[in-house]
Write a protein that binds this DNA or RNA. Structure first.
Lengths: 145, 145
DNA sequence: TTGTAAATGAAAATCATTTACAAGTAGGTG
DNA sequence: CACCTACTTGTAAATGATTTTCATTTACAA
């Protein structure tokens, strides 16, 4: 999905088509995975002029609500965003607690979780699934100490 | 493990045995799973008198470091703690985003994640794995709207 | 063009968590 | 036991991401 399709979807949901929102939507869809709000803000400002942080957050909220963007939580006190719905090819990460490097991991337990959840009538909306640890090079450095 | 064993372990690690730390350790081990720092603080104050928030956090940090308590992140802007080491019978949760109810889930993908991670030399230390969604009763209410 | 509900930015508020620092204390030493 | 000193404590302030408030502006239906 490109930003224009997302933009149309927002329109269909009754959101007003403002200049600022368009800028944010464009930038989020231009970026890759795991974009921070701060980073999105500065890219918006660089390329397109005035945008405020609250507007970035508000637009991200509506994109997540609309199922156009995923909110990713790595348990490190910050939130990341990436284009794509919850059912798209979402993926998870190995996060190095030393250097912050993030590696994609192919594995996703969403299916089995949904099955398990179904038993108690629980409806899964978001899956937080990230492994924190040490990447190869940081693990090597650690061993030298 | 009961609180006294944990207490001994802290001693063996060279931590000083202060009144305040003992109170916190007692309370954390008296509580169940997913205790918030705020909740731990107030229980400590109720039963044992003066303790400050920084001391609670500092003690929790050392318990986690010592592998006696787990830090659980549900991606909801807060951190939970529960007695038990990372390798004990740790478990994961279904978290209702509406009413906050948390159900244990038997499933744990730690093994397969470790395998997957090993391929790139990544050493897993902590697994964040929680599903957020709607519990049966909140899902029912949602449908009525 | 106009009215109005929705959206905006600046500044302030939140809220969990952490830090700085002065005052207090555990626990080894003589 | 008295003393020393590094480790701990509590208070108050800092932090940092995110959210709210509110006066001003804007999209868009009529």
């Amino acid at each position: 999905m490109d930003w224009q399709q997302a933009w149309d979807q927002l329109g269909q949901r009754g959101y007003r088509k403002t200049q600022q929102r368009m800028i944010v939507v464009k930038e989020v869809f231009a970026g890759g995975c795991l974009q921070g709000a701060e980073e999105i803000l500065s890219r918006c400002r660089e390329k397109d002029g005035g945008i405020s942080m609250p507007t970035v957050y508000r637009t991200l909220d509506m994109l997540v609500d609309a199922g156009l963007v995923r909110r990713v939580n790595l348990g490190l006190g910050r939130t990341w965003f990436e284009p794509g719905g919850p059912d798209d090819d979402h993926h998870h990460h190995l996060v190095c607690e030393q250097c912050g490097k993030r590696e994609k991991i192919a594995l996703c337990p969403l299916g089995i979780v949904e099955n398990e959840a179904k038993r108690s009538g629980f409806k899964v909306r978001e899956l937080h699934f990230e492994a924190v640890g040490l990447c190869r090079s940081c693990a090597a450095k650690e061993r030298k100490k």
